[in-house]
Amino acid sequence: MNTEAIIDLLYKIADDQLIIGHRNSEWTGLGPILEEDIAFSSMAQDKIGQSLVLYRMLNDLGESDPDTIAFMRNADQFHCCQFVELPIGEFDFSIIRQFLFDTSEIIRFEMLSSSAYEPLALASKKFKGEIKYHIMHANIFMKQLGNATEESVKRLQDALETAMPYALGIFETSEYEDAMMDEGIFAGEATLRNKWTERIEEVISNTALKLPDIGNIEPKTGGRYGKHTAHLQPLLDEMAEVLRIDPGADW
C-alpha cells in the first residue's frame, strides 16, 4: 500500500482535528450560555482525542511520538486547512464553522470507514459515532438561530459568507488523490465535496439563510501544503508554551 499517501492523508486529518479541537476549547468559560461552554468543550475533547489516535497511527508508520508531532512542529509543517485555524470570533462564526467543518468531517469518516487501510477504517467507524452528536448540535443551532430573530439570521448569513471560501479549502486535493482511489484508501476530495454540498444545502434549506453561490467562490487553499494564515503560528506557540520551558522534562 502507498505509505506516503497514507501518511499525507493522516497528517491532514489529524492536524484538522487538533486545531479545530484547540479552537473549540477556547469557548470554555466564555460561551453565550453555560450549556454551550460544555458542548464546545465536549466536541473539543472528542476532536483532540481523535487527533491523538491518528498521530499514534502515524507513529506506527515511523513518524515521531504524538506529543512531539502535535506540539513541536511549526506552522509550515502543518497540513490542516486554513478554515480550522481562524480565531473563534463571535458565536455566529464558530457555529457556522462547526456546521460546515463537521459536516465535511462526518462524511470523510463515513467514506474512510471502508478504507483499504484497516487501522484508519476502524478508527473512522468509531469517530463517526462521536461526530454524529456534533452534527446534531450544529444542525439544531442552524435551525434555531437561522430562523429566529432578524439579528440572528443576519449574523449567521454574514458568517456563512465569510466562512465559505475557507470551508471550500477543506477539499484542497493532495498529490495522491489518484493513488488513494486506485488502492481504495480514500475516494477523494472531489467526491467528498459533492456529498458535502448536498448535505449543507439540505440543512440550510430549512432556515431563512441563503447558501452562497459555491461554484463561483475561489477556495482559500494552501493549508494542505503548509501555507497558513497568520493565525496558526501564534496558536502553536501558545500550545507549546509550557512544553518549551523545559523540553526534556516530563510534565
Binding site: 460561551g31 454551550e36 463571535e90 458565536f91 438561530l145 430573530t149 439579528e151 440572528s152 449574523r155
Partner: peptide
C-alpha cells in the same frame, strides 16, 4: 453581552 443575541434567539 456577546452572547445576548444567542440567548434571545433561543
Amino acid at each position: 453581552e456577546r452572547g445576548r443575541w444567542v440567548r434571545e434567539a433561543l
